[in-house]
Design a protein around this nucleic acid. Structure first.
Lengths: 223, 223
DNA sequence: AACAAGGTTTAGTCATGGCTAAACTCCCAG
DNA sequence: CTGGGAGTTTAGCCATGACTAAACCTTGTT
């Protein structure tokens, strides 16, 4: 089923999932949104969406947006499972730093056979989360729950546990790695500066309070 | 350098290497030969050869054949290194049976980053041969020596050591696996039946003499 | 109710890498 | 030394998936 789709198709479905259900949104995804997600022109996106609709993988209503169908979602989750299993495997078995696994997995996810997927999952003991804390879709491809909120959206004074960290920003990941911040780290939000200023937060992995930018705080998702 | 070439280009260069230097031949490779190697029409091959010539990866003389240039050979060897490292890794680290590693490697070889290649090589202890006994081109991409002759071409009465086994025939590999025949196995050629009949050979991995077909005997290369 | 702006789609183009059919070369045999 | 057959190339086509420019909806605002 996956093998019969091109990398491009898989990328669109994965992107649509990330922008829709994966982010907990139920409204249709906009052409512009998926185009910018894939760094592609809006016209190119329209073309592909029409094609995906013809293949029964999405419902596309012109000028109104797209939504994944059941079969489209299955493929998206299959790709996501590949991606996250690969990230985990590269980190655990080959020692690839966690800020680099995303880029490697992004390419390999399209070329992993079911056979190899199964062997990798078994070798890892069927993990349920990747190194960034993102849930790995299980073999039956049921949808994992979407993340709750970011550290930035956590009120001052609260203590939250880091659930996951966005995997696509290597610089942020390297910095968080230095701080020892990752899934499971506890964070107390102390206060924030004015005008979108930094967030002052105490991680249990560091001695001192850290001042982190809004961008960085929005990359950290808490439970 | 490798990253700037498509899978198709890489496959042509790899195929040309296999048909030329990799088999110990120095004459130009014929359009028909490379076309059939890649299961592509002769017209398609001509097109691609013209393109490769324009890229400086081959010298193509119309109606006369093709030869790899220095840079074309480097890329072919890089792909071959990827292929054989992957075969070795899949077999050793993930337990993929030796008759299946070729198909997996065939796909992944085009998508392996230099970074990952290096990690895999290190993890394996920089091996010099893959599970089928084929030499893995070293990091500096010097050409490995071509194999000498097949078991079929070994005179009756001689004892030879298996050096390598063609990796692209899963059925043959499964059968040889059952017999315990692989790189390092000793084989005594006893006699052969008439009219291209079977070869009667005693492997040190089995008790009894085996009768094997010409096709099978030509898949086994000896030192 | 009409218009402008922003978002979306259509139209037409390009590159890659296949294909078939037809034309062309090369070389061997007579 | 010439004809024919095998091998090779050219010509013209298709699918995929990108692009820009232009036309087209939708919607919020007057």
């Amino acid at each position: 089923m996956l093998a019969t789709t091109s990398s491009a198709v898989q990328d669109y479905l994965k992107g649509l999932y990330a922008l829709g259900e994966g982010a907990g949104r139920t409204e249709p995804v906009t052409t512009t949104a998926i185009a910018s997600q894939l760094s592609v022109s809006a016209a190119s996106a329209t073309n592909m969406l029409k094609k995906l609709d013809g293949m029964g993988l999405v419902d596309h209503i012109p000028y109104r947006g797209v939504q994944l169908t059941e079969s489209g979602r299955k493929i998206a989750l299959e790709v996501l499972r590949h991606h996250r299993l690969l990230e985990t495997y590269l980190a655990e078995a080959l020692g690839v730093p966690w800020d680099q696994v995303h880029a490697e997995a992004e390419v390999l996810e399209h070329h992993l056979s079911e056979e190899l997927e199964e062997r990798i999952a078994a070798r890892l003991g069927n993990p349920t989360a990747d190194p960034h804390g993102h849930p790995i879709p299980p073999r039956d491809l049921t949808s994992p729950p979407p993340p709750a909120r970011t550290l930035w959206d956590t009120p001052d004074g609260e203590v939250a546990t880091v659930g996951s960290v966005s995997d696509s920003d290597p610089e942020a990941l390297r910095y968080l790695g230095e701080l020892g911040v990752g899934p499971g780290t506890h964070a107390r939000v102390n206060r924030r500066g004015p005008v979108g200023g930094p967030l002052f937060v105490a991680f249990d992995s560091t001695d001192e309070e850290q001042a982190i930018s809004k961008e960085l705080a929005e990359v950290i998702w808490v439970a």
